[in-house]
């Protein structure tokens, strides 16, 4: 399914993401890595993971769509690209992989690249390359949607 190229909205939204990451670091000293924050709330808990700031950050994420709805009167565009069985497998892989690799698009991609972390640069190149390959095989070799 075609989607429209939105350079300005995406650049602006991206800047907001960067601003939020800096705000979290500047005020609480924590990295805005969503997989790390969410998994930090799950058992088994290790010491030193700040529960309250993590819960507050996640609540902020959860109220974003309701606030967007109130402000604009509409929901953001969302089109699923896969059926429920594929989404289930994808979810398992995303959850398992981001915790095993200590980060996702926000922690390694945005924060890690901004800090010039060698680990994050390696992780980001890896998940980007694998994702490009996955979509190529899925759409153009296997004929998925």
């Amino acid at each position: 399914m075609e989607t429209q190229f939105t350079p300005f909205a995406s650049l602006f939204g991206g800047a907001m993401i960067g601003l939020a990451a800096v705000l979290l670091m500047l005020t609480t000293g924590r990295l805005a890595g969503v997989s790390g924050i969410v998994s930090g709330l799950l058992p088994p808990r290790t010491t030193g993971q700040a529960t309250y700031t993590g819960v507050a950050f996640v609540i902020g994420l959860l109220v974003a769509i309701p606030i967007y709805l109130i402000a604009t009167g509409g929901l953001p565009d969302q089109s699923m690209v896969a059926g429920l069985p594929v989404l289930a497998v994808a979810g398992l892989l995303v959850g398992f992989g981001t915790v095993l690799g200590n980060g996702c698009t926000s922690g390694h991609g945005v924060c890690g690249l901004s800090r010039l972390s060698q680990r994050s640069i390696a992780a980001t190149i890896t998940f980007m390359a694998v994702a490009f390959l996955t979509v190529f095989v899925w759409r153009h070799v296997l004929g998925g949607q």
């Binding site: 974003a64 979810g91 398992f96 992989g97 694998v130 996955t134």
Partner: peptide, 25 residues
């Protein structure tokens, strides 16, 4: 572990189009 985890994440991200941030939102 870093590269293996990032690879598994890449497969799931490619298949579903969701990474953790947008999924939670």
């Amino acid at each position: 572990r870093l590269i293996g985890g990032a690879s598994l994440f890449g497969v799931g991200w490619g298949l579903g189009g969701f990474c953790p941030g947008p999924a939670i939102v």
